[in-house]
Design a protein around this nucleic acid. Structure first.
Length: 517
RNA sequence: GGGCCAUUAGCUCAGUUGGUUAGAGCAUCCGCCUUUUAAGCGGAGUGUCGAAGGUUCGAAUCCUUCAUGGCCCA
C-alpha cells in the first residue's frame, strides 16, 4: 500500500509563522528554498526520496485517447509536476509522464486538509504519484480529481522558463536531461532515432542478416583513413586504438562463413568537431556474400525508402527547406564523368601532385599544400560535384586510388566498383564490391604504407592478420556503410549532428568535471 | 588552426553616446482566490553583468588576454 500523505493532527500554520520554513537570508536562492521545503516535508514525516516504487494503472496518452472508457474511473498515475495553478483551497497540476501531460485537480475537501497543507512544499519538477477519478473540466480538459497523492521525488533545481524552454545551446548539450525535460521536440528527435534503429534491425533481420559485435579496442585501427584515439592496456602494457571503422572485422566474419552480417556500432575518429562531425559517432556496416555494389545499391534503396516511409509516412519530406524524394530508384552519377562535365578535366589526365594542385588553384578550391594528388582530387570532387547532389543520388565509379578496399571495375581497371550515396549535399552511405584478391589488397596496403612513411597519420599500419583472412578465401561480397547520425539528422530535420547525439563531446567547464553550478 | 558573433537574475532576454541605485517576462517569496490552463488580482528584485588585467573622475558598455559556446572557413 502506498504511503499517502496523511496526518494524524492538523498542521495549520500560525499567522506569525507563515513562511517560517524559509531561511530569510536565502529566501531568494531557489535551491535553498527547495531544501527548506524538503526539510519541512521531512519534519512532517514525509521523505520524498523514500518510496521505492509506484504502480500506475494507466498512462496519460491512454486516458486522453479513450476518455469515454476512463471517465469516472479510478486511476493511479505518476509523473513530473510541470505546472502548478493554485486556486485557493484547490489547485491544478500538470503531471507529465512518458506519454505526455495529464491535468490533476486537488481539492482540499477531497484530499484532506492535512494533505492539502503539504502542497505548500510542492515545486515544479517534483515527481508525484496520484490516485483519483477521471473527469472533464468545464473548459473540457481531461483531468484527474485527486483523492490521494504521494511525493515520489523532490526536485532541488529550478526548471527553465516554461515558455521558452532551454535555448542556451551549450547548456542543452551539457545538461541534456534538462533539455529533454522541458523541450518535448528534443524527446521526439531521440524517439525517432531509436525507432530508426529498431526499423533497421527489423529490415535486416527479414533479409537474414545477423547482428555481430566486433572489438572496439584494437592493436591496429583500420578500415578507413582517420586518426585514431590512443589508449593503453595496463596488464598487457600495450598501446591500443579505438576503432575508426567496422569493416575489417566484419569481413573476417564473411571469411568465417557468416554470409550476411552487420553491426551498428560506435566508431571514433580523432578529428575536429563541427555541425557534421562528432568524435564518436554511429555507423551501420553490413556485408553480404555473393553480391556486389549493385546489390548494395538495391539494398540501400530499399532500406532507406522503407525507413523514410516508416518514420515520415511518405517518401517525400522537407529537410532544411529542401524537398527530398526517396522514391527508388535513386539517381546515378558517374563521378569521373561528372567531374569532367563540371571542370572539363579528366581525372586520369591529372597524374602528378603538381597537376592536381594546379587544377585546384584554377578551380579556386583551397587545399592543404601538403596534400598529395589523390587527396587534392578528393577535395576537388567534394567542392565541385557533391554539393549539387540534393536528391538521393549514387555517386559511383570512384578511382581505385581513393578506394583501397574496393574491387576494380573489370572494364576500367583504374576505377572501382564503388558508390557513395549523397543526400542534401552530404555523404550518407558508402559501398563497394569488396576486394577479395589478397595479393591486390597487399599491394594497395603497401602503397598506402608509402604515404604513412611520408607522414600521413591518417593511414593505418598494414593489418597482416586481415590479409591472412583474405588469403583463406573471401567470397565475392558487397559491403555498405551508413552514417546513422546523418541519417537521423535527415529524418528529424536537424542541421547539427549534436542535435541527434544525446551527449555530444564537449570540453568540460572545469578540468576533470562536466558540471559547474 | 583562422574569421565573425555571443556570454547580464534560476530561465528567456532588454540595457541608448561610458554617467547617479542594472531592467522586463517567466520562475521564486508574501497575501487573496475550490473547474483553472501562458489562470487571475495585490505586494517583494533575488545580480561577482563569463574571468583577469587595463584606460577613465566614472565601465555591463571602451582596450588586452583568457575561458566556454555558436556560425562560417580550413
Amino acid at each position: 500500500m502506498p504511503q499517502w500523505v496523511k496526518f494524524g493532527c492538523r498542521l495549520r500554520r500560525s499567522r506569525e509563522n507563515r513562511g517560517g520554513y524559509i531561511l530569510s537570508e536565502d529566501s531568494f536562492d531557489p535551491r535553498a528554498v527547495r531544501l527548506s521545503k524538503l526539510e519541512a516535508l521531512r519534519a512532517r514525516g514525509v521523505n520524498p526520496y523514500e518510496p521505492t516504487n509506484f504502480k500506475a494503472t494507466v498512462l496519460s496518452g491512454e486516458v486522453h485517447d479513450h476518455f469515454a472508457e476512463w471517465d469516472g474511473k479510478l486511476v493511479r498515475m505518476a509523473g513530473r509536476v510541470m505546472a502548478i495553478r493554485t486556486h485557493g483551497r484547490a489547485m491544478f497540476l500538470d503531471l507529465v509522464d512518458q506519454q505526455g501531460k495529464i491535468q490533476c485537480h486537488l481539492r482540499e475537501d477531497v484530499v484532506g486538509e492535512a494533505a492539502f497543507e503539504l502542497t505548500e512544499f510542492m515545486d515544479l519538477g517534483d515527481i508525484l504519484g496520484v490516485e483519483g477519478t477521471v473527469f472533464k473540466t468545464r473548459r473540457g480538459e481531461i483531468t484527474v480529481e485527486v483523492r490521494h497523492y504521494q511525493f515520489l521525488s523532490k526536485s532541488l533545481q529550478d526548471l527553465p522558463d516554461k515558455r521558452h524552454g532551454l535555448t542556451n545551446v551549450d547548456l542543452r548539450y551539457r545538461q541534456r536531461y534538462v533539455d529533454l525535460l522541458v523541450n518535448p521536440e528534443v524527446r521526439e528527435v531521440f524517439s525517432i532515432r531509436t525507432r530508426t534503429l529498431t526499423f533497421i534491425r527489423r529490415f535486416l533481420a527479414e533479409r537474414d542478416f545477423v547482428e555481430m559485435e566486433t572489438p572496439v579496442l584494437l592493436p591496429i585501427a583500420g578500415g578507413t583513413e582517420a586518426r585514431p584515439f590512443v589508449t593503453h592496456h595496463n596488464a598487457l602494457d600495450m598501446t591500443l586504438y579505438l576503432r575508426i571503422a567496422l569493416e575489417l572485422h566484419l569481413k573476417r566474419l564473411i571469411v568465417g562463413g557468416f554470409d550476411r552480417v552487420y553491426e551498428i556500432g560506435r566508431v571514433f575518429r580523432n578529428e575536429g568537431i563541427s555541425t557534421r562531425h562528432n568524435p564518436e559517432f554511429t555507423m551501420l556496416e553490413l556485408y553480404q556474400a555473393y553480391t556486389d555494389y549493385q546489390g548494395m545499391m538495391e539494398l540501400v534503396e530499399s532500406l532507406l525508402s522503407y525507413l523514410v516511409h516508416q518514420i515520415k509516412g511518405s517518401l517525400q519530406f522537407e529537410y532544411q527547406g529542401q524537398r527530398l524524394d526517396f522514391t527508388p530508384p535513386f539517381d546515378r552519377v558517374d563521378m569521373v564523368e561528372r567531374l569532367f562535365e563540371k571542370t572539363g578535366v579528366r581525372w586520369e589526365s591529372i597524374v602528378s601532385t603538381q597537376d592536381a594542385h594546379r587544377l585546384a588553384r584554377d578551380l579556386g578550391v583551397a587545399v592543404d599544400s601538403r596534400f598529395d594528388r589523390t587527396q587534392v582530387m578528393d577535395k576537388i570532387t567534394g567542392q565541385v560535384v557533391e554539393p549539387d547532389l540534393v536528391q538521393p543520388t549514387f555517386l559511383w565509379h570512384h578511382p581505385v586510388d581513393i578506394s583501397p578496399l574496393a574491387k576494380r571495375d573489370p572494364k576500367a581497371l583504374n576505377l572501382a566498383e564503388r558508390f557513395e550515396l549523397f543526400v542534401a549535399g552530404h555523404e550518407l552511405a558508402n559501398a563497394f564490391s569488396e576486394l577479395n584478391d589478397p595479393l591486390d589488397q597487399r599491394e594497395r596496403f603497401l602503397r598506402q604504407q608509402e604515404q604513412r612513411r611520408q607522414g600521413n597519420e591518417e593511414v593505418p599500419p598494414l593489418d597482416e592478420d586481415f590479409l591472412n583472412a583474405l588469403e583463406h578465401g573471401m567470397p565475392p561480397t558487397g559491403g555498405l556503410g551508413v552514417g546513422i547520425d546523418r541519417l537521423v539528422m535527415l529524418l528529424t530535420n536537424s542541421s547539427s549532428i549534436r542535435d541527434v547525439i544525446l551527449f555530444p563531446t564537449m570540453r568540460p567547464l572545469t578540468p576533470g568535471s562536466t558540471f559547474e553550478s
